[in-house]
């Protein structure tokens, strides 16, 4: 009985958190640098990015030949993707009061440079980057990821 009560309390708490996230349906980050052709795919629709464009959790960012893009996420994480790259921002959430949240991104093709931000500092396990062959745990730092060959073809 008591266990069940706890279970319901948890469900309720999780539900409320989900609502909180939905309310804070802010952008995950903003495009700060851009060269060449950069597309952002959101819910199946692809559009050209520009400096100042917002990116959201679940977006796919695609750069063309001789192209690159730099994005600052809301927790100060700095990303840059090189030419011919596909970056999937699978999940992003950041609570500005507690610094709790999640960052999950995959480099499907090409290259990515990362300087980790407040999420990795507050809770390293909340931050995960992956490539077709690896998953990375981040302990407050900067690094480069380069996917070999043509990487994974698109989903």
């Amino acid at each position: 009985m008591r266990l069940q009560a706890i279970k319901y309390a948890l469900i309720l708490a999780c539900g409320c958190m989900a609502v909180g996230d939905a309310l804070a349906a802010d952008a995950a980050g903003v495009v700060k640098t851009l060269k060449g052709t950069v597309q952002v795919e959101r819910a199946g629709i692809s559009s050209g990015a520009a400096i100042g464009s917002e990116v959201y959790g679940r977006d796919r960012i695609v750069t063309g030949p001789e192209s690159s893009v730099g994005i600052t996420l809301r927790d100060d994480t700095q990303l840059s993707a090189g030419a011919n790259s596909i970056l999937d921002l699978n999940k992003f959430a950041f609570d500005t009061t507690t610094h709790a949240g999640v960052l999950d991104a995959s480099v499907k093709r090409g290259s990515l440079a990362v300087i980790s931000g407040k999420l990795a500092k507050a809770n390293p396990d909340a931050v995960r980057f992956s490539t077709p062959t690896t998953t990375l745990g981040v302990r407050g730092t900067a690094f480069i990821i380069e996917v070999g060959g043509n990487g994974e073809s698109a989903r």
Binding site: T131, T133, L136, T141, A142, G148, G149
Partner: peptide, 25 residues
């Protein structure tokens, strides 16, 4: 002979070096 995926650690902008833990299959 697909080239490997590469991960390279950099010093952060303040000069500190953290760590990355790489998991493969």
């Amino acid at each position: 002979s697909t080239p490997p995926d590469k991960i390279i650690l950099l010093p952060d902008p303040e000069g500190k070096v953290g760590a990355v833990i790489v998991h493969s299959a």
